[in-house]
Simulated scan of single mutants.
Amino acid sequence: MNLSPLPAIMLEPLVRAALLEDLGRAGDLTTDAIVPKNHSATTVLAARQAGVVAGLDLARLAFRLIDETVQVTVECPDGSEVAHGQTIATVSGPARAILTAERTALNFLCHLSGIATATASVVAAVRDHGAKIVCTRKMTPGLRAIEKYAVRAGGGSNHRFGLDDAILIKDNHIAIAGGIRTAIERARSSVGHLVKIEVEVDTLTQLEEALGFAPDAVLLDNMSVDELRHAVALVAGRAITEASGRITLGSAAEIAATGVDLISIGWLTHSAPIMDIGLDYRDS
């Protein structure tokens, strides 16, 4: 997998804020009281269930922002499939720093690995078809960049990143504009030539109307499998087709078999369970 890491300048504010929230006004009272100041330790980040790893750069930052001498040696980089009990990385250095940063590091790592794991499961389900699995804007506020990165780590792709990089005309836009034609015409006259336009439709009749104004993509919202199959035939390659709405791991393959180009799934980011990863002390 060719997975490009996110620049540290994007990650550090998130990790720094999380550490400051945890440290509060007096720091780590428990660790400072119990662990000798100069004590060193070796620990491992270990998978407590099978899954796909994502978020190691954030975990590394958490440890190193507390003490830059902490060393994180990665064995299974982001995007790797790991088995239960497998070592993902070794963390060594000042024990106080490791224990203080532990929860923040694991919060990021478990959350993002959960997203990557959920994404990978759906990607595997549609492997025999041409559809790509994409996320939506249903993200944790403030964590959009890293959650979308986790989707890529799981083999998925990204929908638009925000309101400013593409036009998605939804039902309320159409209702307020007074119709699909007016909405598309206003959108096309307002943006540059590099901005793509997608229109959400609920019925085949709406789809046929939208296609008359040449959108770049159509979002086929909450359509049945039969409707999706007819929609793909109606589009006939004139626009990118995206299926969305109440899609599950169990239904993804059947939907992909209709020939849609994209399947967008909100729960990949807003409801994916964490991947259970622990930090285990290794007595030298």
Rank of each mutant, 00 (worst) to 15 (best):
A33L: 12
Y149P: 03
R48T: 01
N172R: 02
A8M: 14
S190K: 12
S4E: 13
V91S: 04
A183I: 08
S271Q: 15
R160V: 00
L29Y: 14
A120Y: 05
S190I: 10
A124V: 04
D280Y: 13
L204G: 03
T87K: 15
T90Y: 14
R64H: 07
I88W: 08
V15W: 06
L99V: 08
P77C: 00
V15L: 01
L163N: 01
A243G: 04
R103L: 07
K148R: 06
A120S: 13
A105T: 04
G212H: 03
N2S: 12
S80E: 02
R64I: 09
R181T: 14
R96F: 07
A210G: 02
N107S: 10
G179N: 02
I34S: 10
T241F: 04
T140N: 07
I169C: 03
L228E: 11
R103F: 11
A239I: 11
M223S: 06
D261S: 14
G162D: 04
G93H: 09
S271V: 01
D202V: 06
H159V: 00
S92L: 07
V91L: 02
A175S: 15
E209L: 09
A46H: 10
T31W: 04
A243T: 04
L268V: 00
T248N: 05
L19R: 10
T69M: 04
A33W: 10
